[in-house]
Design a protein around this nucleic acid. Structure first.
Length: 499
RNA sequence: GCCCCCAUCGUCUAGAGGCCUAGGACGCCACCCUUUCAAGGUGGAGACCAGGGGUUCGAAUCCCCUUGGGGGCACCA
């Protein structure tokens, strides 16, 4: 058995899509599982929509996900890798031209002079008579003289591949045997545009053949197109690879996941603070499962257990809530210094955007880890959680300062008493245990519920009702600022309390 | 319209004829823990395995039909 070679062939017409990432992941998993080669190829023949920025985004995020390719194009300062280059289709144009010329020479393809208007008219007529859209074959049997006449008119031909009648069958690695009558393929297929640039169905086959791809693992949306590819492989005289069509990732309404209905750009998940481990873990479990009851598995472990035959056939709805849970699981599993490193950019961004007044250093972030680790569904939530520590002043809604069971005056008194007690305890008493003791003492002496007092103090210090543990937060804030915020909050209540 | 694929709790899934009065996870609801929020723990609701026919001693698992959903049918990828 020849070595397994798989590939991911993204088109740089948008930022890396969740679906592309999942397809890349499954190719990667299969390659790693069987010790094969994972190839990256850029399908940039749609020059109207492809951009360098998207290309960079795709490469960058595949890399971010940890899906390293064994062969691929030169990019981001890295040299091209692999013996089957170039790995960018626009650099392979001569190869397609040569292949197309061969097909035309063998009359397996022919020049087509139909104009876009003519084709559009055909399509409309078919639609009107409720016929499936299909090329009518106007140029299929043109004589040399007829072709010459059209050339003389200045018409530039596209190239169409003849779809022969018959049934094409293949054994999909996930779905089993699939048989499709070529009559359902829409007629002869354009493989080269009038401007000379090749089309997807053609380039994908020419390249998969040239690059020795043995297994084509891709989304189910290509299942119906597979016969076209098989026909092209045969016409080109190349062995047909094995196919595996993955179930689609779905919007909540069970349609194919789309930008319109879902967040599809990987970069947006990165920006929110999803970690690669969680995204990879989640994506792998969208359509595959280890068959055990383990939910949290690292990439290497998934690769070790991966099996194409175990892949689900039905589409899977992308469930953000589950991804967030998994993200929390992974955040809890990260090493301290690793987590600090990943958190830092988010705090820096908060600082740059003016949401906080100071950008904390690594040591400072590290000290907060025990307070935040279990409270972050995404890394980007860090600012909300501990921003009060790095802000000169916090905005406080006076209504929140008064716990449900309390009067405004009680809250004012409570804050004042708390401030007094903390002040009286001195710097030596400004530690988690003593602070809690002091405030419990204040509550007890006044007949207040400790929880109510704590809530008033919490809001005074942070502006929020949900925060990390209070006394740890106080220590992190520092004595001076605790006293200042307590006094300021008490005064705010005073100002609003009628004498 | 034509062709193809699919079908287990709301969601992701386990299940490859008897272990299933269908298991786990997310989400949801209680309770416990608790200074808030999380996390964690315990428990609960939630799927007559889309429906109907077969095959079989026995079917979520095999076959057929129906229904439903999705995808494809470009000089997009």
């Amino acid at each position: 058995m020849p070595d397994v070679r798989v590939r991911i062939a993204p088109s740089p017409t948008g930022p890396l899509h969740i679906g592309t990432a999942r397809t890349a992941l499954f190719n990667y998993l299969y390659a790693r599982h069987v010790g094969g080669t994972f190839v990256l190829r850029l399908e940039d023949t749609d020059q109207a929509r492809s951009t360098e920025g998207f290309e960079r985004d795709i490469l960058e995020h595949l890399h971010w996900l940890g899906l390293a390719w064994d062969e691929g194009p030169a990019a981001g300062g890295r040299a091209e890798r692999g013996p089957h280059g170039p790995y960018r289709q626009m650099a392979r144009l001569p190869l397609y031209a040569e292949a197309a010329a061969r097909l035309v020479a063998e009359d397996r393809a022919y020049p087509c002079y139909c104009s876009p208007d003519e084709l559009e008219a055909d399509r409309r007529a078919q639609e009107a008579s409720r016929q499936p859209p299909r090329y009518v074959g106007r140029c299929a049997t043109l004589t040399a003289a007829e072709r010459a006449a059209r050339e003389a008119e200045g018409r530039r031909p596209a190239v169409r591949f003849r779809i022969e009648p018959g049934v094409v069958a293949f054994d999909d690695l996930i779905r089993g045997r699939v048989e499709i009558d070529t009559a359902a393929l829409g007629g002869d297929l354009v493989i080269v545009r009038a401007d000379g640039t090749p089309l997807y169905h053609f380039t994908v086959v020419v390249d998969d053949a040239a690059m020795g791809i043995t297994h084509v693992i891709r989304g189910e949306d290509h299942l119906s197109n597979t016969p076209k590819h098989i026909l092209l492989f045969r016409a080109l005289g190349h062995p047909v690879p094995a196919f595996a069509h993955l179930p689609l990732i779905l919007n909540p309404d069970r349609t194919k996941m789309s930008k319109r209905k879902s967040q599809t750009a990987v970069r947006d998940y990165v920006a929110e603070g999803f970690v690669r481990e969680a995204l990879v873990n989640y994506l792998a479990y969208l359509g595959w499962s280890p068959g055990t009851e383990e939910d949290v598995l690292p990439l290497a472990e998934i690769a070790a257990r991966f099996d194409l035959a175990a892949v689900q056939k039905g589409g899977a709805v992308f469930d953000r809530a589950r991804l967030e849970w998994l993200n929390g699981q992974w955040i809890r599993r990260l090493a301290d210094d690793d987590l600090v490193e990943r958190l830092a950019p988010f705090l820096e961004a908060d600082w740059a955007a003016g949401r906080i007044d100071r950008n904390p250093g690594p040591a400072e972030i590290a000290a907060l880890l025990p307070l935040v680790r279990e409270r972050l569904p995404v890394l980007g939530a860090i600012g909300e959680l501990v921003g009060f520590l790095f802000s000169d002043a916090v905005a406080i809604d006076p209504a929140l300062l008064v716990p449900k069971r309390w009067e405004r005056a009680t809250a004012r008194a409570g804050l004042a008493e708390a401030s007094r007690a903390i002040d009286a305890a001195g710097p030596e008493g400004f530690a988690v245990g003593p602070l809690e003791g002091a405030l419990r003492g204040v509550a007890g002496a006044n007949g207040w519920k400790a929880g109510d007092l704590f809530m008033a103090v919490r809001v005074a210090l942070t502006g929020r009702t949900a925060t990390p543990p209070l006394f740890e937060s106080m220590v992190a804030l520092g004595r001076e600022r605790v006293l200042a915020r307590l006094d300021r909050a008490a005064r705010a209540l005073e100002a609003e309390t009628p004498a």
